[in-house]
Design a protein around this nucleic acid. Structure first.
Lengths: 135, 135
DNA sequence: GCTATATTATTTAATATTGAACTATTTGTC
DNA sequence: GACAAATAGTTCAATATTAAATAATATAGC
C-alpha cells in the first residue's frame, strides 16, 4: 500500500521535474509521447497510439488534432481498411521531436541518476511486473 | 531511461485498474485524494492539500469547489490569518470516504500482490529516493 | 449476400490540469 | 507606522482526460 503511494509520487515527481524541455517547445506530455512514438516506431493508427501512451481514444483524437493544427503530424486514411487513420510525422514534426529528444533523455537520466545502475535495473524489473498485470 | 518509462507505466496501469471504486461513487482521483487527506490528517488549507496530492493551486480550488457543491467538504476562513481557508470534511463527506476506503485499499493491495512483501519494500525504498530528489 | 458483431474514430459533457495574472492578507524592514 | 516582499486563494485560457453515445467500416456466421 505504501509502496503504491510512493510509486505514484515518484512517477509524478520525476515527470514534473523533466517537463521543462517539453513545455519549452509548447508541447504537453501527451503530445510529446505521440511524437516520440511516431519517431521511433513509425506511422501508427490512433488506437495503437492510445495503447502506447495509455490514454483513451477520445483523448488521442484531441491530442492528434492539436498536433495537426500545428503542422507536426498528418492524418492519412488507410485505403485497405478505411476504419483506420494512420498518423504520420511531418518533416517539421520530425525536426522538432528529433531536436528535443536528446535533452529530454538527458533530463530523465539526470533525475534517475540518484539510483545506481543496479537499482535502476531492479526498479525496472519490479515496475514491469506491475505494469504487465492483467486487468 | 527504460526504468523511468516502466515506472510511469506501472503507476498509471495500477491507478487505472483501481479507479473503479472511486468512479463508482462519481469521485475523481483528485477528489478522492482530497477526501482521503482530510480524513486521515484532519482539516487542512488548500496549499497543503496541493502539496499532498501534487497538484497546482488553481486545480485545488476547482476540486474543492466540486466537492463543496456535492456537500462533501466545507470551507472555513481562518480567523487568525485570513489568507487561509481551512477545508473540513462534512458528516456526509466523512461517511462517504470512510465507506469507500476499505475497498480502495483492498483493490490496491490486490494489484500490488503480484510483488512479494520484500519486493514491495524494495520498490518503496527506490521510489522514495526518486520522489525526494530536490528540484 | 445479409445480418450481427466488432473495431476505429469522433463527438459531447463533465471534470482536471497547468501557468500566469490577479486580489487579499500578512510579515519584515526601515 | 509605511511599504516591499511573501503567501493564500481565485480566475482565466488553453489543453487534457474520461466515459458514453454515435457513425463508419469491416468481419463472421448463417
Amino acid at each position: 500500500m505504501n509502496a503504491f503511494i510512493k510509486l505514484v509520487r515518484a512517477a509524478e515527481s520525476v515527470a514534473a521535474r523533466t517537463r521543462h524541455v517539453m513545455s519549452g517547445a509548447r508541447l504537453t506530455e501527451s503530445q510529446f509521447g505521440v511524437l516520440d512514438a511516431l519517431l521511433h516506431l513509425g506511422p501508427m493508427c490512433q488506437v495503437d497510439l492510445g495503447r502506447k501512451i495509455l490514454k483513451s481514444g477520445g483523448n488521442i483524437t484531441l491530442v492528434v488534432d492539436n498536433l495537426e493544427k500545428r503542422g507536426l503530424v498528418e492524418r492519412r486514411r488507410d485505403e485497405k481498411d478505411r476504419r483506420y487513420i494512420m498518423v504520420h510525422l511531418t518533416a517539421e514534426g520530425q525536426r522538432l521531436v528529433s531536436s528535443l529528444f536528446p535533452s529530454h533523455v538527458e533530463g530523465i537520466q539526470q533525475e534517475m541518476s540518484i539510483l545506481s545502475a543496479a537499482e535502476q535495473e531492479e526498479l525496472g524489473r519490479l515496475c514491469r511486473k506491475l505494469g504487465a498485470r492483467k486487468a
